[in-house]
Design a protein around this nucleic acid. Sequence first.
DNA 1: TTTACAAAACTAATGACATTAGTTATTATA
DNA 2: TATAATAACTAATGTCATTAGTTTTGTAAA
Lengths: 189, 189
Amino acid sequence: MVQRQGLDAENVLQAAVEMADTQGVEGLTLAAIAAKLNVKTPSLYNHIKGLPDLRMQLSRRGLMLIKAAMVDAVIGKAKDDALLAVGFAYVNFARKHPGLYEAISTLPDYEDPELKEAGNEVVLFLLRILAPYGLSEEDALHVVRGFRSMVHGFASLEHRNGFRMGLERDESLRRMLLTYLKGLRASVD
Amino acid sequence: MVQRQGLDAENVLQAAVEMADTQGVEGLTLAAIAAKLNVKTPSLYNHIKGLPDLRMQLSRRGLMLIKAAMVDAVIGKAKDDALLAVGFAYVNFARKHPGLYEAISTLPDYEDPELKEAGNEVVLFLLRILAPYGLSEEDALHVVRGFRSMVHGFASLEHRNGFRMGLERDESLRRMLLTYLKGLRASVD
DNA sequence: TTTACAAAACTAATGACATTAGTTATTATA
DNA sequence: TATAATAACTAATGTCATTAGTTTTGTAAA
């Protein structure tokens, strides 16, 4: 009588991604995921360890995808062009996948090795883009922090409807990054 | 037999603030607040409408306090000095009151009039600090967005342990703001 | 001083949720 | 075809928020 739904871990994660992107991470419940998959809640435990585990997977997946988007955006570009492209790729990912982005930015476990590794990769990626600027290692690390703060802050505020004025948002992002880069050039020269 | 605890709305909110600052907003439960106040959970409903209401109050209180901190920081300062001071006041508030800050940055209801008002006041405050730069209204609004993105992004990443390198964090913040301001000056000239 | 009323606390009950234990049935493999 | 792994299930527990209805306390009026 019991129909198998052919679920696996990837299936469940996919459903979680979709629900997070439409209803937000806080509204993400195992009950809702199970219903979406035509299964009772406990059945999910054959594929995930529990809700914290699922959230962690969400974060990992999001970090992987946003990094891929940044890497893709930078192809054929260098210096300011590259940084601008990375910034827009970051923000556009957050726009397209609000749930995944939320999962990235509210990390469940700072100490998860896989998350740490993915985070490091992003930093290394940014450092490589900064290489042509000829900064010292320390200077470059400060710039990476600044860059991450800017794009994360922008994406986060935009997501929470923090920008209420009827002002082009892409233009705000463009100007913020360009202004910062101009200041960077002024410092280097 | 039943001892009155002399609770009122402010009392409950205070307890919520303390718990949010120590355990985080997601760990904030009515059950825990009630226990802290030596009261059963339903008793709280004499003073609050429910958990969403309490979260809202938390956001309002946080927004009020962080604005006060920024206003205080700017006394006797102008231009770059003032903006730097505001940035540090913002980040230091987030450090001192992580729970309140979380409540601010994960607003429960974008449409609450009191929250909208408080948000507008912050924007107006920043615009007044920007006034001496002689920007057009549109330019100034873009700068406000940039500034808010930077300081929120920094505070948020720092709160999530996003900065792992053994690098002075205050120095990173200082450099980000100064680099941006340098770029701003370069644009204006 | 007594009485009456508002409010602050309580108990009991409900419903949503996550999680665990133990069961049944299906699929794949030997 | 028989067996073992596993995907689904039901049942049960515990935590939480919330509501309804009750008791008790403090205060203010008579």
